[in-house]
């Protein structure tokens, strides 16, 4: 702690943070605050003059069945994607740190979908999931013709397909992150448990997991926010929220109301709801994965 005591105490050097703070305020905080203002306006598209209507938009949004469907779909999406992704990624990450045969190749392969942008992922799965595409070809090849369907155009499979893509790209990437964190744990603890005859499952969940629980929580929060907020891009590329509203999430509704249906007030009310859900979800994850990291120290 002698380091801190000899640090510069005059705040003058902090002027150097001003440009980045200004930048952050103008391009990040400003637009975020503006959401709450736009939510109170009647605004028919970006080229028109807005008029102030107060809380009227909120009533309109909450009475709209499309909004109800979007809430439902968003909840389904995160309630399936995150609880599946995080434990699987943790187990794969743990597997990587035990250095199985070919673990270098495994980690390179797991990592690679993280390099592909969302628009490229969309284009890959546009082909894979099209009626004559890869998945149906595979099903026909193994004699399951009756399972083949137009994955993205069928109301019962559109949303599950999108969730599957989230998992496809998310699990491996998250596993590599877990592996990086697990590799920094003291090896003696785990060796001692192995000598005591503890099984693999027991070591993984009872010893390794509590030691990185805070990190599990951080990644769960990031993946949750990422899934909740950015699903619009993939939906825009693949299903446009359809068929009907079967794959419309809140994130996509924000986009669609602003750009295709020219109702900015509505769009930003949904944006505020999304933001509140994000905050609520973070508190939920924090509560679910709370505090036992203190016990293990």
């Amino acid at each position: 702690m002698s380091l801190t005591s000899t640090r510069v105490h005059s705040p003058r050097v902090l002027w150097l943070t001003v440009p980045s703070l200004v930048w952050f305020a103008v391009f990040s905080v400003g637009p975020l605050a503006a959401m709450f203002v736009i939510a109170t306006l009647r605004w028919k598209g970006l080229l028109y003059e807005p008029t102030y209507i107060g809380l009227e938009n909120i009533g309109r949004v909450f009475a709209d069945p499309t909004f109800h469907a979007a809430v439902r779909n968003s909840v389904i999406q995160v309630a399936i994607a995150i609880p599946v992704m995080i434990p699987l990624a943790f187990m794969l990450g743990y597997h990587l740190t035990t250095k199985p045969r070919g673990y270098r190749i495994l980690s390179v392969l797991y990592f690679s979908p993280g390099l592909i942008s969302i628009s490229m992922t969309g284009m890959i799965f546009y082909g894979v999931l099209s009626p004559n595409g890869g998945v149906n070809g595979l099903l026909r090849g193994i004699g399951l013709d009756s399972w083949a369907t137009a994955w993205l155009a069928d109301p019962s499979t559109a949303l599950p397909s999108l969730i599957a893509i989230d998992l496809w790209r998310g699990i491996g990437w998250t596993a590599v992150l877990f592996a990086a964190r697990l590799a920094s744990l003291p090896a003696e603890v785990i060796e001692a448990a192995q000598i005591d005859g503890a099984g693999r499952m027991r070591i993984m969940w009872r010893i390794a997991f509590p030691m990185v629980k805070d990190y599990v929580r951080t990644l769960a929060m990031l993946q949750f926010l990422w899934t909740l907020f950015t699903s619009a891009a993939l939906i825009l590329l693949l299903t446009k929220g359809g068929p009907g509203t079967s794959s419309t999430t809140l994130s996509y509704l924000v986009y669609a109301k602003a750009f295709s249906q020219r109702d900015l007030g509505y769009s930003q009310v949904v944006g505020v709801v999304l933001l509140l859900l994000g905050v609520a979800g973070m508190f939920l994850i924090r509560a679910l994965l709370r505090g036992s990291e203190e016990d293990s120290r």
């Binding site: 736009i38 970006l46 602003a258 933001l275």
Partner: peptide
């Protein structure tokens, strides 16, 4: 989260 206000900006 703030895509639309950013477009306005």
């Amino acid at each position: 989260a703030a895509l639309i206000p950013t477009v306005v900006l």
